[in-house]
Computed example of a mutant assay.
Amino acid sequence: MSNDKPTLEPPIGVLGGTFDPIHHGHLRLALETAEQLHLDEVRMIPNGQPPHRDAPAASAEQRAHWVNLATAPEPRLTMDSRELRRAGRSYTVDTLADMRAEWPNRPLCLIMGRDVFADLPSWHHWRELFELAHIALIDRGSSRPALAAEAAAELDIRYSDDPAILASRPAGAIIPIEPPTLAISASRIRALLAAGASPRYLLPDTVLEELMTTNVYSQPATTERS
């Protein structure tokens, strides 16, 4: 019997979010990460029922449609609707387990900001994340929130600044990335639309056209969610 390890296939990035709506900040982050870490693709995953925030203002169908529109011109970005198809809370560990079952020999790379990583020990079965995926940590020198003690310990153990580690194992490392800062937020886009102002150039024109047609953010209450 051979003890050789299976050959790893090209790595996949994983970027989750409400995408309420998707904008250029999301898209540039995904593309820059794909280029910095030599990812085969980045799966853009709209949250179904996010456990750490209020429900999105737009419906699951609307948000998935917008992500499809926004990613259509770039072959390395793909809309992935698995969380929208799954009932109940959208726990990242369940999403990664589902992806790992689908791609047993592909490194998965979960993209998250340092502010999110700082609070990682509050996540559902958070330690299992490292068994399922690497973490691409957005690490901008100007914004470094203090980490929870357990998160800091994992960063010390797992940190690697060499993207080549993705070719050696399917999960377990924390790799820094430094994408450019784009001061764009979905809450700002919603506020502009609610006020009758234009958010043009903050998000793809194809998505903006859909927002203007459907008037999904015309009510001021929808601007309160970040």
Rank of each mutant, 00 (worst) to 15 (best):
G88M: 12
G88W: 10
S90R: 05
T92K: 07
V93S: 11
D94Y: 08
A97Q: 14
A97F: 09
M99H: 07
M99F: 08
A101G: 03
E102K: 12
W103M: 09
W103N: 02
N105R: 05
N105K: 01
R106C: 08
C109Y: 01
I111N: 00
I111M: 01
M112W: 00
G113Y: 03
V116K: 05
A118K: 05
W123F: 15
W126S: 11
R127F: 05
R127M: 14
E131A: 14
L132F: 10
A136E: 01
L137Y: 01
D139F: 02
G141R: 02
P145W: 03
P145D: 05
A153I: 04
E154T: 07
L155K: 09
L155N: 11
D161E: 12
P163F: 10
I165Y: 04
A167I: 10
I174K: 13
I174R: 09
I175G: 10
P179T: 04
A183L: 15
A183F: 08
I184V: 12
A186W: 02
R190H: 12
L192H: 12
L192Q: 15
L193M: 15
L193K: 13
A195N: 13
G196A: 12
A197R: 14
R200Y: 07
P204W: 01
D205C: 12
L211A: 03
M212R: 02
N215H: 04
Q219I: 05
P220W: 00
T222I: 06
